[in-house]
Nucleic acid binder design. Structure first.
Lengths: 252, 252
DNA sequence: TGTCCAGATTGGCCTGACCAGCTAAGGGAT
DNA sequence: ATCCCTTAGCTGGTCAGGCCAATCTGGACA
């Protein structure tokens, strides 16, 4: 049992992570989730917390609970079927993030508060800790890091844009599985790169912040490309080479 | 207690009952509910059950939980309308557009096709014609101009982001009325600025395209600020000065 | 009169336990 | 060998009690 970690109730984090995994197809529709007891162990939380998370999923219509049997996935996407249901490829998504979040960071640099900087520092520490313990939850801190920067711009349109990108990421099965693979292949969550972004924000330098953010996302993009290459070496070597060219010529 | 239909988890009954009492006004908006422990006793259930019920209410937007303080009623009826309806201020919106569409233009510069360039040329001509005839400047050509550039990035996430910004613009009453006023005040649709963007795209120069787009939107932002100043000169001079400072110090 | 601090209150979470459905493995009857 | 039926072991549902941190509140003190 570890650390209270700032923001939000615990069950929310668990619910969000589970929801993501369902969207990613890690748990197929109709499939049974691990038992509450197993989940509790996996997430290093207590069973009541897992229960609360499952209730949240249930109210979102993602999941159905059958007494004595288990909880089953009933849908992959939060119901509400809103119009913006695009499915974006992982590379497109990262390219867009590099462009947009780069500007988000630049804007934030000029306006970020000391409190927000402190919160960012805490999130980096959290990522580091989770990374060391190899816990399942590590995506959450990353997301909060990037969203907090967007919030620091004090521009709700920018926040909405960044939010949209992360939502798309959560909904994209391709992206999820690819990033899972990259993660399994030993790609660590890049603590140093996040630290570099934080440093630039501390200095209130828009240019440095933009560059740090773009560098970070460029590296993520490249490591994903590398992972893809290893995986599909035989079947699509040529296509991938073209893709690499396409997405790196547009690099800063 | 209440006679309830057999089936269903306990927390659902409690949640339903509480929800009813809130709707009935038994707990007014802003008021604090009894503590979890008290509720548990009142409903003759355990505290975890009460917690689960409260989480359900929270997810319905009926209630807000404040650590160490209590749970407070935030609404009388379950919210039906979904949250996607942000209302963004005109200045925020332009700031975000400057950041995001700037990058959109930069990306597009490297990838835009000759056909798309030709289509852009046609749109500029269209704007010019409408402007000359002093037509009610449908803004349609303007919108298509910017959207086409986003499309030229061949990045659906970028397209979605730009689309979202224009949608927000269309939905925002503030923005609409402000831009109408600015237009009435003699602000012309800036043919030359659009032409400059087109020129940079023709040259396939990401840097030039970014700069041209940012310059364009910066000028729009400034003319809107000016229009605002003229209009509200007496009532809010101080506030506007602050706003100007805020939104111009973040310029590139 | 105003300030400040300690105790009471409240939500957040955990541990451990018992009950009641559900499921599937194993044993007996045919 | 096949089929049915019992039963043990899962799973969710709920409870009880406890510790912690954030918050609030009522004096005591300056």
């Amino acid at each position: 049992m570890i650390a209270k970690t700032e923001a939000g109730r615990l069950y929310e984090k668990v619910a969000q992570d589970l929801s993501q995994k369902i969207a990613a197809g890690q748990y197929a529709v109709g499939q049974r989730l691990p038992s509450e007891r197993d989940l509790a162990q996996a997430y290093e939380v207590s069973r009541p917390t897992i229960r609360e998370a499952i209730i949240a999923l249930e109210l979102d219509g993602l999941v159905e609970v059958r007494l004595g049997s288990g909880v089953y996935v009933t849908a992959r996407l939060p119901r509400g079927g809103q119009a913006g249901e695009m499915d974006v490829g992982p590379f497109e998504l990262l390219e867009a993030r590099r462009a947009i979040e780069g500007e988000s960071a630049a804007l934030a640099a000029a306006l970020i508060s000391d409190e927000e900087l402190e919160e960012l520092r805490r999130l980096v520490a959290e990522m580091q800790a989770e990374n060391a313990r190899n816990v399942v939850m590590s995506e959450d801190a990353d997301r909060r890091f990037h969203m907090l920067i967007a919030t620091a711009t004090q521009n709700s349109a920018m926040v909405a844009a960044v939010q949209m990108l992360w939502d798309a990421r959560a909904r994209s099965p391709q992206t999820q599985s690819l990033s899972a693979k990259a993660h399994a292949a030993g790609v660590t969550p890049r603590i140093d790169e996040h630290a570099a972004i934080l440093k630039a924000l501390r200095e209130r330098s828009p240019e440095a912040a933009r560059r740090a953010m773009r560098d970070h996302l460029t590296r993520v993009l490249e490591s994903l490309l590398a992972a893809t290459e290893v995986q599909e070496l035989e079947q699509a070597r040529a296509r991938i080479a073209a893709e690499r060219k396409r997405y790196t010529t547009t690099a800063r």
